[in-house]
Design a protein around this nucleic acid. Structure first.
Lengths: 222, 222
DNA sequence: AACCGGTGTTAAGGCATACTTAAGAATAGT
DNA sequence: ACTATTCTTAAGTATGCCTTAACACCGGTT
C-alpha cells in the first residue's frame, strides 16, 4: 500500500511519513508541486495526500490535472484554509476527502483507512472461457474483444452452460433453467437456441452428448 | 441515483429530501432505525444519509451492522456531537464521511456529490460520452457543444445510464432509481422518457435489450 | 445399404414487448 | 391562482424474439 505525501512543511511531511510507516504503509514524500505531478503520472500510488499550498505547482492545479487525465488515484487534500467554498471546491474538483490543518493525527489516520477501504473491493466477477467474456453484472458478452448481442434465452442458456464447464447438462435441466417448471416446450426450441449460440460464437463451443444433453469443454490444459 | 435519508427530525429529513430531489436525486426517507436497517438490507441505494440518534435502533449500530454484513453502500453520517473520538469512531466503523449538525446545505450537497462520484468508479465530476457532456453538479447537459435542456426525469435517467456505459439496467432498476418506492408507476412512463432522450440526442444512444432493459453502448474501441 | 431415433438447419407466423404519439394530470414557477 | 412546463396514461402501431414445423443430416443398428 503505497502513499505519496505532497507537503512542503518539513516537520508536517516528515511526521506524516513516520506515522504512515508505523501503520504499515509505504510512504513517499515530495515537497515540490511539479515534481509531484510527474511522480503521480509515472508511478502508481494507492493514495495521494496533497497539500494545497505548494511551490512551483499549486495543489488545486495538481488535483484538477489528475482528474483531467483520468488518473484513478484517491486524493486526500490538506488545507489550511477553512472557508466552506474552498472545501466545496476541493471536493468538486475530485478530491476524495479533505482535512483542515491543523489536524489530529488520529483523525487523519482514520480517514486514510476509510479511503483505502473504499478503494479496495471493487472486484468484478467475470466469467471467461477462451475468447468469450460474460459479465453477469452487466449482462454484457464479448467474443474476441467484440461485443456480441444475445437474446434473453440465449444469454440464460450460455451462462448456465458456462457456469460449469465440463459438466454435462441434460436437455431437461436446460429446458428447466430456461422455462422454469411452468410451461413445457414441445418442440426443438432448445436446439434452435443452441444453434444460434454456436453461430454467434463457434460451433465447437457446445458439444452434443448424444441422447443426454450438452457440455462446454473445459478450457485447454486442465 | 437513489438516496435513503434516515433522520427522525421531521423538518430536517423533509428538507434534505426536497433539496436532494431538486439536485436530481431520488430520495426516500425513514425516521425509524429498525425500519431503515431492513430497507437497507432489502433494497439498493446509492447512498445512505444516517443520523446517529434514532428511535428503535441507534445509527451507529446500523452502521456497524451494514459493514458486518458487507453491504457496500456508502454512508454519510450526521452527528450532533462534536468530539473527535466520535468522528474517528464513525469513520472506523465504516462511514464514508460525516457531517456535524448543524450543517450548511451547500456543503452537505458537495459532500454527497463527492461520495456518489467516488462510488461510481471515481469518474471525473464531468461525465462525457461521445458528444454528450453532463455535469452532475449543475444538472446541465450539452450535446455537440450546444446546450440541451432535460427535464428532471430525463436527467436522472440519462445520468443513471451514463454512469455505467455497457451495463444493462433492468427496467425495474431504472424505475426504482427514478421513483424510489414512494410512488409507483403502472404504465409505460419509462419508455416514454427513453423515447424523449433518444429524440433529444440520437436514437442509437440507448439500446434496448428486449425483455430486460436498456444500455448505453461503451464508446467505440474497447 | 437401408432404416431409425436423435440432432441440426432454416424459415415463417404469432405474440409479447417496445415505440410513438397525443391528450389529460400533475407539478412548479410567477 | 394562473400559466407553463413536465409527467403519466393510454391507445395504436411497429418490431423482433421465440416457437413451431418441415426437412436435412448424422450415427448406430439391423
Amino acid at each position: 500500500m503505497r502513499i505519496l505525501v505532497v507537503e512542503d512543511d518539513t516537520s508536517l511531511g516528515d511526521g506524516l511519513c513516520v506515522a504512515l510507516k508505523r501503520e504499515g504503509f509505504t510512504a513517499d514524500w515530495l515537497t515540490d508541486g511539479l515534481q509531484a505531478m510527474q511522480a503521480i503520472e509515472q508511478e502508481t500510488f494507492d493514495l495521494v495526500i496533497l497539500d494545497l499550498g505548494l511551490p512551483r505547482m499549486d495543489g488545486m492545479s495538481i488535483l484538477t490535472k489528475i482528474r483531467e487525465k483520468a488518473i484513478a488515484v484517491p486524493v486526500l487534500v490538506l488545507t489550511a484554509r477553512d472557508g466552506i467554498d474552498d472545501r466545496v471546491g476541493g471536493l468538486d474538483a475530485g478530491a476524495d476527502d479533505y482535512v483542515v490543518k491543523p489536524f489530529d493525527l488520529v483523525e487523519i489516520m482514520a480517514r486514510i483507512r476509510a479511503i483505502v477501504r473504499r478503494s479496495k473491493g471493487r472486484a468484478v466477477s467475470l466469467i471467461t472461457h477462451n475468447d468469450i467474456e460474460l459479465s453477469p453484472d452487466s449482462m454484457q458478452v464479448t467474443y474476441q474483444g467484440k461485443g456480441v448481442t444475445l437474446t434473453r434465452r440465449e444469454y440464460v442458456l450460455l451462462s448456465e452452460l458456462l457456469s460449469r464447464p465440463g459438466h454435462v447438462f441434460t436437455r431437461d435441466a436446460l429446458v428447466q433453467s430456461l422455462y422454469g417448471w411452468g410451461e413445457e416446450v414441445e418442440s426443438n426450441a432448445l436446439e434452435v437456441h443452441i444453434h444460434h449460440l454456436r453461430k454467434k460464437f463457434y460451433s465447437e463451443l457446445i458439444r452434443t452428448i448424444r441422447g443426454v444433453g450438452y457440455v462446454i469443454e473445459k478450457p485447454v490444459g486442465e
